[in-house]
Structure formats: C-alpha cells, structure tokens
Amino acid sequence: MSDDNKKNLDKGKINIELDEAVAEGTYSNLAIINHSVSEFVVDFVNIMPGRPKSKVKSRIILTPQHAKRLLKALGDNIQRFEKAHGEIKDYDKAPVPLNFGPTGQA
C-alpha cells in the first residue's frame, strides 16, 4: 500500500497513548465543579469515613464547549448503561454520612 493510501486511511483517527500509571485510574466519590467565563474546572476527591480532611486527587480543566460535549457523552453512556443493567438509583441525600464515626485502628 502506498504512503498516500496509508495517510488517507489514517485521516480522522486520533492516536492516543495510555501509560500504566494513568491506566490504573483514581477513585473519586465526589466531584466539585466551578466555572469562569472561559473554563470549567472539575476537581475529583476521594472522601473516606473517619478522615477529617481529603485532598483533590485529580483536576480536569475544560473549555465550555468541551464541558457541554462531556455532559452529552456522559448522558449517552448512562442511557446505554441503564438499558443494559437497569436504572441507576439516585439519592437526594447520601445514605450514610461521609464522615461518620471515629478513625479506625488496627
């Protein structure tokens, strides 16, 4: 296959690399979202019971256009998930307080 044909086949494709550390992911049970005129900032936090303080584990900064695309993509994926696995239950309040009880000891 000629180089020109290969280039035409690759048009419209994005080459994305995922290194091992990022592939492991980071657990988050809280997202804090703020915005300005030019950007949306999403801070992902992991709050654990009995811990008085938590740290932001990851921060994603998006343009308003990308934030809107993310909202649509999440909505589409949630619809597909619920079609396959049933409705995701939503709580008005968290069923258990996030900072309940004393810190555990071993």
Rank of each mutant, 00 (worst) to 15 (best):
M1Q: 06
S2F: 04
S2H: 07
D3I: 15
D3P: 06
D3N: 15
D4H: 11
D4Q: 15
N5L: 11
N5F: 13
N5V: 10
N5Q: 15
K7I: 15
L9W: 13
L9I: 13
D10Y: 09
K11D: 09
G12D: 00
K13R: 14
E17H: 15
E17W: 15
L18A: 10
D19T: 14
D19W: 15
D19P: 06
D19E: 11
E20M: 00
E20H: 00
A21C: 10
A21P: 03
V22G: 07
V22P: 02
A23M: 00
E24Y: 04
E24L: 09
G25P: 04
G25A: 08
G25D: 03
Y27A: 09
Y27D: 13
Y27F: 04
Y27V: 10
N29V: 12
A31C: 14
I32S: 03
N34A: 11
N34M: 04
S36G: 08
V37M: 13
E39M: 14
E39Y: 01
F40E: 02
F40T: 11
F40C: 02
F40M: 00
F40V: 03
V42Y: 12
V42Q: 11
F44P: 04
F44N: 07
N46C: 04
I47F: 04
M48G: 03
M48L: 11
P49Q: 10
P49Y: 01
G50Q: 03
G50H: 01
G50C: 02
G50I: 02
R51P: 01
R51F: 09
P52V: 08
P52M: 10
K53S: 06
S54V: 01
K55F: 12
V56Y: 04
V56Q: 15
K57T: 10
K57F: 14
K57M: 14
S58T: 13
S58K: 04
I60E: 08
I60D: 03
I60H: 12
I60M: 14
I61P: 12
Q65D: 12
H66N: 13
H66W: 12
L70S: 09
L71E: 12
K72L: 15
K72F: 14
K72Q: 12
A73M: 03
L74E: 09
L74R: 04
L74P: 15
L74S: 11
L74T: 11
D76M: 00
N77Q: 07
N77M: 05
I78D: 02
I78S: 02
I78F: 05
I78Y: 05
I78E: 07
Q79S: 07
Q79N: 01
F81T: 01
F81M: 06
E82G: 00
E82M: 01
E82P: 00
K83A: 10
K83W: 02
K83M: 12
A84M: 08
A84H: 01
H85R: 05
G86N: 14
G86I: 09
E87V: 06
E87G: 07
I88C: 14
I88L: 11
I88K: 12
K89N: 11
D90S: 08
D90N: 10
D92C: 06
D92T: 14
K93T: 02
K93Q: 06
K93W: 05
A94Q: 13
P95N: 06
P95A: 10
P95L: 07
V96D: 04
V96Y: 09
P97W: 07
P97N: 03
L98I: 07
L98R: 01
G101P: 08
G101D: 15
G101N: 07
G101C: 06
P102Y: 00
T103W: 01
G104Q: 03
Q105T: 05
